[in-house]
Design a protein around this nucleic acid. Structure first.
Lengths: 154, 154
DNA sequence: CTCGGTGCAAAGCTTTTGCATCCGC
DNA sequence: GCGGATGCAAAAGCTTTGCACCGAG
């Protein structure tokens, strides 16, 4: 609770710094979107974010959401995922442990996991191939044990 | 050369088995698409496949290409990638070393690499989280050294 | 002969774009 | 007040769908 409020404050100040550095405007819509993302949990797509803001009677256009998400991805406050369907999924990225994803082919459930070895591989491959690697995305796909499998989305 | 022909034969017989097992028809279009994929190299999207077949005066509709690609993905002869844009990329999957991808954020160049440790992680996470993991996709993104960077697509 | 597959075009969905209006600076 | 940002709607781009026709089994 207090922790969440602290994170929200921290994230806002990071966003403000970034907007100032890039000479972008601090519009209320941008902050409302940031707040909505850090208040809700889990993965989301543009339509879901749009709906949940509309339900709170905060009107933002889809165009503004796309625009703001791009900025938030640029300043590393949000990560964008492409989980195989053609629908971009987003996720907050600050104050949240680095993790990767395991997706059930049957019920489409998304599970998060951490493995420090991925960072080692990233460092080694970066050195080896002379790349300055900045992000990685590791996705495993398979079937979860039937007892746990919900066989329905999310 | 001979090796390529052998692989093509092998792949065809795998495809035939799969079609028979699933009671799907062995149409000339399906084999033409398979052959085109295994003759060309590298990654491709639907439009590129469509064009290169049209250029060879083999007319297939896009609908058939999408249909056939789904089947080929199901029988593991083709892999489908989502590299972040909303355009599905495909790649032949048989007789080709398991690999992952490194993408330059500047020039969009896609580089392949292998690392056996990923398989270890996959096995361990599968055991740990009770998943029967069947595929993985690991993508690194970053900038390649300027001297090598072409700063243009592909 | 049957019914699955193909081709074509239309529809569907997500994302991008153009333009008038608005408001942060 | 200037110029970037927003909102709306139209356009774009990839993929799916519907339907008539074709051809594999």
């Amino acid at each position: 609770m207090t922790a969440d409020t602290e994170i929200l404050q921290e994230v806002k100040s990071i966003f403000i710094s970034y907007l100032e550095k890039q000479a972008l405007r601090k519009t209320p819509e941008r902050f409302a979107i940031l707040e909505e993302i850090y208040t809700r949990g889990g993965h989301f797509d543009v339509e879901r974010l749009y709906d949940s803001m509309k339900n709170k009677n905060y009107r933002v256009s889809r165009a503004t959401i796309y625009n703001t998400l791009d900025i938030l991805v640029d300043c590393n406050l949000v990560v964008k995922h492409q989980f195989g369907d053609n629908l971009a999924q987003y996720e907050k990225a600050h104050g949240y442990k680095q993790h990767d994803h395991l997706i059930c082919s049957d019920c489409q459930k998304v599970i998060e996991f951490c493995d420090p070895r991925i960072q080692n591989i990233q460092n080694m491959i970066g050195d080896l191939l002379q790349f300055n690697i900045q992000h990685h995305s590791l996705i495993f796909r398979g079937e979860c044990k039937k007892e746990n499998c919900e066989n329905r989305p999310q």
